[in-house]
Amino acid sequence: MTNRADDIIDRRRLRRKLTFWRVVALLVVVLAVAAAASWAMGGPFGGGAADHIAKVRIEGTITEDEELLDRLERIAESPRVRGLILTIDSPGGTTAGGEAIYEAVRKIAADKPVVAQVGTLAASAGYMIASAADHIVARQSSIVGSIGVLVQFPDVTALMDKIGVRLEGVKSSPLKAEPSPFTPTTEEERAMLRALVMDSYDWFVGLVEERRPLSRAEVLAVADGSIFTGRQALDRKLVDGLGGEEVAIEWLASKGVDADLAVIEWKAESNGMFGSLSLAQAVARLLGIDALSPDLARAIGADRIFLDGLLSLWQPSSGALGE
């Protein structure tokens, strides 16, 4: 009886040891994959990949994304990147966010050919970023355009009257902290906002005029907030060609980039060894649970709720409001 108990204990110890070494082996594999990925992207584990065409995805609502700007900076500095494909699928976002990415793309284009490939949508600030490229390719059914700027604010004065709430305050001047959702908007406040919006709109139009083969009059004709299919955009010179990534690569080849080079997507770097996911998120993905995904807010459109400043955004609230 004692020998049988000892055998059971030994087997349990052996299983624990096997489990330990399996975990160690898994960690070694994960580290090796992380090192290989980091080496391919020129990260801390290696000296960088061979010459390649970089690809960066710009998707969802655009804000001032420091990680994306840093990634574009590294692409600009990498001697291994021979050209860049911007894959754009965005309704736009903040004007300042679009401006920051636009400037980062133009810095890359100073030394490397850059082509934008529009997927479903490149509107407002999304099109602003596309115009930073040297060449724009869109699908025939892509949505392009919505050139314009807006500022939005709610008016809850009727609700306050209904529930019996009144806001009082003391301010240094009539336009301080205006417009406010708690007071009716005056003509003076509207004039201030319109001047602000039109100044940014004039800047946006000038940017498109500078980057596209269009006169100012031709830009103004399409800069009324209208959206166009890829085919319509081609007729209006808002894009240069129709197709997908293969067409973008063909254009890069015409600029001296070897078409046989690998296209490597530069993705967001993480703060840890497990890529762009935290350990909990990685486990959730493995289990098929996406609730912990960092893209959840974007998927339900919640990221648009928290945009500040002037917007260059097509359909900012599920179609209720336009440019």
Rank of each mutant, 00 (worst) to 15 (best):
residue 18 L to W: 15
residue 178 E to K: 13
residue 275 G to R: 06
residue 153 F to S: 03
residue 147 I to L: 10
residue 289 I to Y: 15
residue 26 L to R: 02
residue 167 L to W: 03
residue 143 I to W: 02
residue 203 W to C: 01
residue 321 L to Y: 07
residue 252 L to P: 03
residue 108 I to P: 02
residue 122 A to E: 00
residue 213 P to S: 10
residue 36 A to V: 14
residue 146 S to I: 06
residue 93 G to D: 07
residue 194 R to S: 13
residue 46 G to N: 05
residue 222 V to Q: 07
residue 181 P to N: 04
residue 278 S to C: 03
residue 315 Q to S: 14
residue 189 E to A: 14
residue 306 F to H: 14
residue 272 G to K: 08
residue 160 M to D: 06
residue 120 T to C: 08
residue 185 T to V: 12
residue 308 D to C: 01
residue 272 G to M: 09
residue 154 P to E: 02
residue 249 I to Q: 03
residue 136 I to W: 02
residue 26 L to W: 10
residue 127 Y to S: 00
residue 263 V to N: 09
residue 166 R to S: 12
residue 108 I to F: 10
residue 87 T to P: 03
residue 78 S to K: 11
residue 46 G to T: 04
residue 10 D to K: 07
residue 287 L to V: 01
residue 311 L to G: 00
residue 28 V to F: 11
residue 115 V to W: 02
residue 9 I to V: 15
residue 17 K to Y: 15
residue 14 L to G: 03
residue 138 A to K: 00
residue 63 T to D: 02
residue 7 D to E: 14
residue 265 E to Y: 03
residue 260 D to Q: 14
residue 191 A to L: 09
residue 182 F to W: 07
residue 155 D to M: 00
residue 283 V to R: 10
residue 268 A to M: 09
residue 221 A to I: 06
residue 186 T to M: 09
residue 313 L to H: 08
residue 176 K to P: 01
residue 249 I to Y: 04
residue 312 S to V: 05
residue 100 A to Q: 05
residue 191 A to W: 05
residue 1 M to T: 14
residue 44 P to H: 08
residue 82 R to G: 01
residue 55 K to V: 12
residue 164 G to D: 04
residue 278 S to W: 01
residue 69 L to C: 10
residue 5 A to Q: 13
residue 93 G to F: 06
residue 184 P to Y: 02
residue 29 V to C: 11
residue 287 L to P: 00
residue 246 E to A: 15
residue 90 S to T: 12
residue 27 L to S: 12
residue 208 V to A: 01
residue 323 E to G: 03
residue 46 G to M: 07
residue 91 P to F: 07
residue 172 S to K: 08
residue 116 A to K: 03
residue 296 L to R: 14
residue 291 A to L: 15
residue 141 S to W: 01
residue 186 T to I: 13
residue 131 S to H: 00
residue 178 E to M: 15
residue 299 A to D: 13
residue 136 I to V: 09
residue 138 A to V: 01
residue 290 D to V: 07
residue 271 N to V: 13
residue 255 K to P: 06
residue 314 W to Y: 12
residue 80 R to P: 05
residue 36 A to Y: 13
residue 306 F to D: 12
residue 20 F to H: 09
residue 158 A to N: 08
residue 179 P to G: 08
residue 130 A to R: 03
residue 321 L to C: 04
residue 91 P to V: 10
residue 182 F to N: 11
residue 36 A to F: 13
residue 111 D to L: 11
residue 91 P to Q: 09
residue 92 G to F: 05
residue 289 I to H: 15
residue 54 A to K: 02
residue 205 V to S: 02
residue 231 R to V: 10
residue 252 L to H: 04
residue 189 E to C: 12
residue 43 G to F: 01
residue 69 L to Y: 03
residue 210 E to W: 07
residue 79 P to N: 14
residue 55 K to I: 10
residue 187 E to N: 06
residue 6 D to Q: 12
residue 145 G to P: 03
residue 160 M to L: 07
residue 25 A to P: 08
residue 8 I to K: 13
residue 209 E to P: 01
residue 192 M to K: 10
residue 112 K to C: 07
residue 101 I to W: 02
residue 125 A to N: 09
residue 118 V to R: 00
residue 286 L to R: 04
residue 234 L to M: 08
residue 237 K to Y: 06
